[in-house]
């Protein structure tokens, strides 16, 4: 394994960089999109609820690979050119956003109905009540499951390997094929994924301890 790291370290590190970049963009993107669709799902407007429901049900029930390949092979043919890294990152963002929408929706809904009524009864608008009362309580409920989603997201970013996205898994496959030492290579790849996921895992634990319980 150490020879792999010594001889092909730069390829794997470049892959790690792409994986990190894709993960960060997908994390932010999926959080924004997921929260938006969570709000759709709990909206008073029926058509928004329907849109939210359809989005979540369709996206989360399609394999990530299919979504990523869709952006890689279908979008370039009919819409606009898109390279593997972009297609994979967009696919990852959309796929994860469906799960985040469900997590955020469940978090918001687990805040008692009375909290919203209490806020509305002094004249706060829906948005003010959400921002002041509901979100702060929902976030504490949502942080632990969200942490799981984010760790899954980093690991799921390996989908980029299938659309030539130059990520860690892509480079790992190339190194494994070039050296024939499949096990050692993937052990190194696994350790490099840990470099990304362990800090994330500890950060989430820290947040849970010092913030959620406050």
């Amino acid at each position: 394994m150490f020879t792999i790291l010594a001889e092909h370290g730069s390829a794997l590190l470049s892959g790690l960089g792409y994986t990190l970049a894709a993960s960060l963009m997908a994390l932010l993107g999926s959080l924004v999109i997921g929260t938006a669709f969570a709000l759709f799902e709990i909206s008073h407007r029926k058509w928004l609820r329907i849109i939210g429901r359809i989005y979540v049900e369709v996206v989360r029930n399609i394999p990530l690979l299919v979504i990523a390949l869709g952006f890689y092979v279908i979008v370039p043919r009919y819409v606009m050119p898109m390279d593997g890294f972009t297609a994979g990152t967009i696919g990852l963002t959309i796929y994860t956003s469906a799960f985040i929408a469900e997590t955020v929706r469940a978090g918001i809904e687990s805040v008692a109905v009375g909290q919203m009524e209490g806020a509305r009864s002094v004249g706060l608008t829906y948005t003010q009540a959400m921002v002041q009362i509901i979100f702060p309580q929902a976030i504490k409920i949502v942080v632990p499951p969200l942490g799981n989603q984010f760790i899954n997201l980093v690991k799921n970013s390996s989908v980029l390997a299938f659309v030539a996205g130059f990520d860690l898994m892509y480079e790992g496959k190339i190194v494994a094929n070039a050296t024939f030492s499949t096990f050692d290579t993937y052990l190194a790849v696994g350790l490099l994924y840990l470099v990304l996921t362990m800090p994330l895992s500890y950060l989430m634990r820290y947040l849970e301890k010092h913030w959620v319980s406050a």
Binding site: L69, Y72, V73, I74, P76, R77, P81, D83, G84, A161, F162, V163, A164, Y170, K173, I174
Partner: peptide, 18 residues
Amino acid sequence: VLQLSDYAQAFTALKSGQ
């Protein structure tokens, strides 16, 4: 060089202009 996982995918990627 873009490396895909099998010939079917590689051919599909070519058809998609990748």
